[in-house]
Design a protein around this nucleic acid. Structure first.
Length: 336
DNA sequence: TCCATTTGACCCAA
DNA sequence: TTGGGTCAAATGGA
């Protein structure tokens, strides 16, 4: 059944590719399509997690449980340096998942599927991956174009200090993650990127100070990515993370290799949002009773996402990515 | 020596 | 004027 979901997601992505010229002028529609695809693959991941009976035994407040599970679920996975997600704190919404299972036709009915996915999303604890707390209006700003340079808004030359804008610069993404239950509680969970702390500030009305981080590669590669980390007043075991800007360091051909993007959960700003998909979820399920239907096809979701978001010309790479998937989808549909 | 963290001071938008 | 965001010198560890 997971394969059906994957195929459905691929199908949607393929359709998105075909409509890309039209969607390019409709950022909101493009974003909605991306969200839908991402949601589908999130559901695949959830379902795979649910299918792992030993998942719950690793549940803890911290991300170590997830990381450990990811390690043990698939020998092919390198140690996940994923950010702790809310999944670590919340049990799966099994009822929603079961609702999707009841009627197999849902998987091929876009409207029903979307409704079920939204229903599940709204009740799921996967708010980090699903963007449950994402400020959509601000995320959209990431891709705003600078009025004079036509460059993406987050790519800015360094203005004189007196001209710098402090707030509302670029996109903003707010999420909460669970703090490790053991060890140093002051250390925010890893998210796959390397950050350098450049400030800490007591915030009025907050018990805990806010820490400011910027990308380690900011100097060399003008990477504008920043994040703020603050513990919640009412739940010191939870960090509120605010991401600003988008990592450009790993997009540079000369940039150092980023932390293994294929197994990490980077900050979910749009261009990199898809990297969590890079976890080889198919391989991750290999240990389950349901063998992957395409063992020779490791589902290059990461490549797919990179092609979708990072490549200037989408057609060739997308065709390459989806050609095999499309064939398999068609054959699956014919079988049904 | 290099790099990351700490922390007081400064800047600026609201 | 104030609070949030950033700078940069000081410090420490590898």
């Amino acid at each position: 059944m997971e394969e059906d979901l994957i195929l459905y997601g691929c199908k949607l992505a393929k359709e998105m590719e075909q409509n890309l010229p039209m969607l390019a002028n409709q950022p909101e529609a493009l974003l909605a399509s991306c969200e839908e695809i991402i949601t589908i693959f999130n559901n695949v991941k959830e379902r795979l997690i649910v299918s792992q009976g030993n998942m719950m035994s690793f549940h803890g407040r911290g991300g170590a449980g997830i990381q450990e599970w990811l390690r043990t679920a698939s020998g092919s996975l390198t140690p996940a340096t994923s950010a702790t997600t809310s999944v670590a704190r919340e049990p799966m919404d099994l009822l929603s998942a079961q609702a999707m299972l009841r009627d197999p036709s849902n998987f091929h009915d876009g409207a029903k599927m979307k409704g079920l996915l939204e229903q599940q999303q709204s009740s799921s604890g996967l708010d980090f991956m699903l963007g449950g707390e994402r400020d959509i209006s601000r995320v959209g700003a990431i891709d705003e174009v600078h009025p004079k340079t036509n460059a993406p808004d987050f790519i800015k030359t360094s203005p004189p200090r007196h001209q710098r804008r402090r707030k509302e610069e670029g996109g903003k993404y707010v999420t909460t993650v669970a703090a490790p239950q053991m060890g140093n509680l002051d250390i925010p969970p890893e998210d796959g990127f390397t950050w350098r702390k450049y400030g800490q500030k007591e915030i009025l009305g907050s018990k805990y100070p806010r820490s400011y981080y910027r990308c380690t590669h900011q100097k060399f590669y003008d990477c504008p990515a920043k994040k703020q980390v603050q513990r919640l007043d009412n739940d010191p075991f939870t960090f509120e993370l605010t991401y600003r800007g988008t990592h450009t360091c790993h997009m540079s051909s000369t940039a150092p290799a980023p932390p293994p993007p294929e197994h990490t959960l980077p900050p979910p700003s749009l261009p990199t949002n898809s990297h969590w998909l890079s976890m080889h979820i198919i391989q991750g399920a290999a240990g389950s009773s349901t063998a992957p239907r395409f063992p020779d096809c490791p589902l290059p979701v990461a490549d797919m996402a990179d092609a979708m978001f990072n490549s200037g010309s989408s057609s060739s790479s997308m065709d390459l990515i989806f050609s095999s998937m499309d064939e398999k989808w068609d054959s699956e549909v014919k079988k049904d």
